[in-house]
Design a protein around this nucleic acid. Sequence first.
DNA 1: AAACTGAGCAACCGCCGTATC
DNA 2: CGATACGGCGGTTGCTCAGTT
Length: 293
Amino acid sequence: MGRSPCCSKVGLRRGPWSTKEDTLLSNYIQQHGEGQWRSLPKNAGLLRCGKSCRLRWMNYLRPGIKRGNISEDEEDLIVRLHGLLGNRWSLIAGRLPGRTDNEIKNYWNTHLLKKLKTAGIHPKPHKDLPKPTKNKKPAAGGKKKKKQKKSTTAGGAEDFGNSSDRNGSQEEKKINSNDPPKTKVYLPKPIRVSSVFPRTSSYDSLASGSSSSEGGGGGAEKAPEVASYVPVPWPPLFEMEDGDYGMRGGDGDGGDDFLGVGCILPVLHQQSDSISDDVNMWEKVYDEYLQLL
DNA sequence: AAACTGAGCAACCGCCGTATC
DNA sequence: CGATACGGCGGTTGCTCAGTT
């Protein structure tokens, strides 16, 4: 469909943001609020694409953003949520107050994936499955030269996430194809709890069951907030053959029993021979997810 | 000390769903 | 009802820097 590109890119700056640009963007958004990303750069006096502004704001400038130092609890949560949700980073981020989808995605691809592999978990792609039906991009593939160097990012993420495309509709598209039967995951549509600072409240409810919205995220409060986590007493998601549920806290690092393994493997190896088994499994997963919510 | 390598992360890209005209 | 705009998402790229040779 004749969509014009998000920005013409002529005369627009690219690359890292300067502090001046950050200031301009922050000031503008504080005065006018979020939204209207397309016209924002012009109004704010920025030579940036609207998308770029949004990304910068969402991932970096927004109040309440925590950066770095992902705690073990958060890591655990990421692993488990990934087991449930796949590569739905925004959804996962919605459960981690102050974290952005981009950061979680990066953390997964750089740290967690490596950890899993180190632990002997090789998220192997479903070889019998052709690459995602959505050969999504001639574009992405072709737009720039591919970088072979980092197979970790691309491969890994995809391996886990095929089942978790953006929304259900896409799932259905895939299922209709001639691909070998793929387990269909019924997941609620990702919802941000609130438009601006969604993370805090949702995590509260997740972790403690309370509905306190942490104030708020609501405002432009600072982020000391989530310094303290309430560890979630996760029930085992799946029974592993060896009885390892993944959450063996232990020393934490012990390569072999990296937490979360238990909840990921079933997702990885969902080569459903028996549809009913899969249905049961996913019902369990879904039930648990509903409990989380 | 210089060159090389790899990891980490910020930013970009194209696609998709929804809203609006 | 179709076309377009917009916002959002996940995948990927490329820069930077620390560690190694």
